[in-house]
């Protein structure tokens, strides 16, 4: 187990924070179409968990997934280009915000179907280990996913076959607008207990606390342990989706939002750095993102003639012959 790197953790949460703010700006200016699900407020979870992983380890993210992709090491410029639908994006503009993936750094993709990725990651980690690679996985999901049967089936398979997957529940209090208390019978960690999986609760606003819990779990898993669950308590600072910037939905009081925002993972981690060091990281992040936005907007839009490129990895075409009707 490695100790926390305070500067590294700060750089990651700051990068995600500013990336998301820049992305929201691009949404408002029409340069990202379809909007995004901002990860603002939850940065400490992706940062803390991914800092406990190695480059070869595997992760899956969610529809609120930019943080996971960036924290695992994807290039911010190519990630931003993907959000902007450019040929230079991670997915050549074929995936967008909800499906950004970079398999070269172990990101098997953001996955926009709630609860769907856990079983996929379990299979991927099992397969890699079967082939002799010493890898573990982390799959991120929200509190809404704990009521998806598919995820509970994945808990069972991973525990039954002792596949080292860290199930990371980002409990931000709401499944879109549905409060956890109105949606979850029992507890989130209790679901893990039902499958014999160790589970812990951590303050998701504290990147070092998340890292410590994740690193301990990862060390147990690398030592032959089975899957574990971490419930990271957090708060979503912004909208479920940027459409809320246009359509106001009334489900959180201003007081509640203010209280949630008061515990900011960027400040919690930033306060652990000397002011000049923090300013230096901020400047580096800003330069990275200036370049990322410029790269994204300069990238060519994909040629419509290639709209169905990669539909089949095999290069198949669906109808053999007959020409166009």
């Amino acid at each position: 187990m490695t100790g926390a790197d305070p500067v590294g953790l700060y750089r990651t949460v700051r990068l995600i924070r500013r990336f998301e703010q820049r992305a929201i700006d691009l949404v408002h200016h029409g340069q990202i179409v379809g909007g995004i699900h901002p990860y603002l407020g939850q940065e400490g979870i992706a940062a803390g968990v991914c800092a406990a992983l190695r480059p070869a380890d595997l992760v899956t993210g969610t529809h609120r997934g930019h943080g996971h992709v960036l924290a695992k090491g994807a290039d911010p410029a190519r990630t931003m280009a993907e959000l902007c639908g450019r040929e230079t994006g991670l997915n050549r503009g074929r995936g967008g915000s909800m499906h950004a993936a970079d398999l070269s750094v172990g990101v098997l993709g953001a996955n926009a179907i709630v609860g769907a990725a856990g079983a996929i990651l379990t299979g991927a980690v099992w397969a890699r280990r079967r082939r002799g690679d010493d890898v573990v996985g982390a799959t991120f999901f929200g509190d809404g996913a704990v009521n998806e049967g598919m995820l509970l089936e994945a808990f069972n398979l991973a525990a039954l076959w002792r596949v080292p997957v860290l199930f990371v529940c980002e409990n931000n209090g709401y499944a879109t607008t549905m409060p956890v208390a109105d949606a979850v019978a029992g507890t989130i960690t209790g679901r893990a207990g039902a499958f014999g999986m160790p589970a812990s609760v951590v303050d998701g606003q504290d990147p070092e606390a998340v890292h410590a819990v994740a690193a301990a779990a990862v060390a147990r898993m690398r030592g032959g342990g089975g899957p574990e669950l971490v419930e990271a308590r957090t708060y979503r600072f912004d909208a479920h989706h940027t459409f809320e910037h246009v359509v106001r939905l009334d489900y959180r009081s201003p007081e509640e939002v203010a209280a949630g925002r008061a515990r900011d993972p960027v400040d919690i981690q930033g306060d652990r750095l000397a002011p000049h060091r923090r300013a230096q990281v901020d400047a580096e992040v800003e330069a990275t993102l200036d370049a990322a936005v410029a790269f994204a907007l300069a990238g060519p839009e994909p040629d419509p003639a290639g709209a169905l490129d990669h539909l089949y990895a095999s290069g198949l075409t669906g109808r053999t012959g007959g020409g166009q009707a």
């Binding site: 079983a119 099992w126 089936e153």
Partner: peptide
């Protein structure tokens, strides 16, 4: 190991196969 019985969890084992395929297997 190569002829694996699964619990009655069709959705999970179907996606497990997807993940294994992403990692280079042919389930």
């Amino acid at each position: 190991e190569r002829v694996r019985d699964t619990p009655l969890s069709e959705q999970a084992f179907t996606s497990f196969a997807t993940g294994a395929a992403l990692a280079g297997m042919r389930p």
